[in-house]
Write a protein that binds this DNA or RNA. Structure first.
Lengths: 181, 181
DNA sequence: AATTTTATGTCAGCCTTGTTGACATAAAAT
DNA sequence: ATTTTATGTCAACAAGGCTGACATAAAATT
């Protein structure tokens, strides 16, 4: 039963608490929050025979229609071979279409189909509900605090990937209050 | 080149913005924040030949020394077979030790060794730095806002898993009954 | 005391999603 | 005409999930 192959070490019995100047509270909260945040769409995805990888692609293609394969790779930080396997399934099953780049015809611009847009919305809905619940009874300043915290967690050189809030969050089309939920 | 097997669908060219009442901004921020948040320890872990699964185990065993295998499974939400593979490596390489439960000798209480504690601290350090940076110039009320948001993201019935802040953040010695979980 | 349930371990095999390396093609750039 | 770039694709591999089946020791129940 897993006998130590070495000299047995003493078990440490004191819990690791923040007195080392380390922020275990938020580290742990991020783990739990993300675990449950992703569990909602994961359940839906299995009904479609898809996984979390499909979700990410569908999400970003819907958020930035026309983005190229290279741009998508850069956002997801995976290899093209990893992407290809999953993207192909989404294209074959008509959730995403490719269009040759108008300026550079080597590029493949990625767009959602109506089906793909529906899926993106269906996956986002429970996540958005969860967020709304977590932000219930929260002032708009407090909401800003949360957004700024999350932005601050992103590598500075990659913050350009976040739709800089002028382009993707404050959005061209509507909802002058920006009150989602 | 991925010819659609169906009738070709029209590409949708409008970006998915929050006017559907869905909070894409924070959904996306959570993805980016978590992606970069986990990248710090991931890099360290490869030096040890470990992965993210090892990290989670080492983290929670250090935070709740003496937790049982069943409790750990419940926190991680994985199967015992998944856990076993990774836990065995940590035990064999002397980062974690098992102790027979004093009350119930079927149970295996998990404790970190000195080596295991060091590893937990090494992995938490860059994450804590990242959090500190994201919270720089933040009032303590704003910090509370962030914590409450993250807690609100967790499934209500699982919030007991969060060290309720009284047990794990403030008071290392409480709960004489050991009624964790 | 005998039986059943529980906590844990373990073997075997499968799936998803990541990786690397190699090579093909068409279009752009030089 | 040649090289570089954007993309696709094949093959093999690894990590870390999963299920199902079975073993054991200890606790709980009858």
């Amino acid at each position: 039963m897993t006998k130590p192959k070495h000299q047995p070490s003493e078990p440490i019995r004191t819990p690791l608490t923040p007195h080392e100047g380390i922020d275990f509270g938020i580290i742990e909260l991020l783990f739990f929050a993300y675990r449950d945040f992703t569990s909602d769409p994961d359940q839906i995805l299995t009904e479609y025979g898809f996984g979390r990888a499909h979700h990410r692609i569908v999400h970003f293609v819907n958020r930035r229609p026309g983005l190229t394969v290279a741009e998508l790779l850069d956002v997801l930080k995976i290899t093209k071979q990893s992407l290809a396997r999953v993207l192909k399934q989404l294209i074959d099953s008509d959730y995403i279409v490719q269009v040759k780049g108008p300026r550079d015809r080597r590029q493949r611009e990625l767009y959602p189909t109506a089906k793909g847009r529906e899926l993106a919305l269906a996956l986002a809905a429970p996540q958005s509900r969860r967020i709304a619940r977590a932000l219930a009874e929260t002032t708009s300043h407090e909401r800003d605090t949360v957004e700024q915290f999350l932005q601050g967690m992103v590598n500075p050189e990659l913050r350009t990937q976040i739709g800089s809030r002028s382009r993707l969050s404050e959005d061209p089309c509507g909802d002058p209050d920006g009150n989602a939920g």
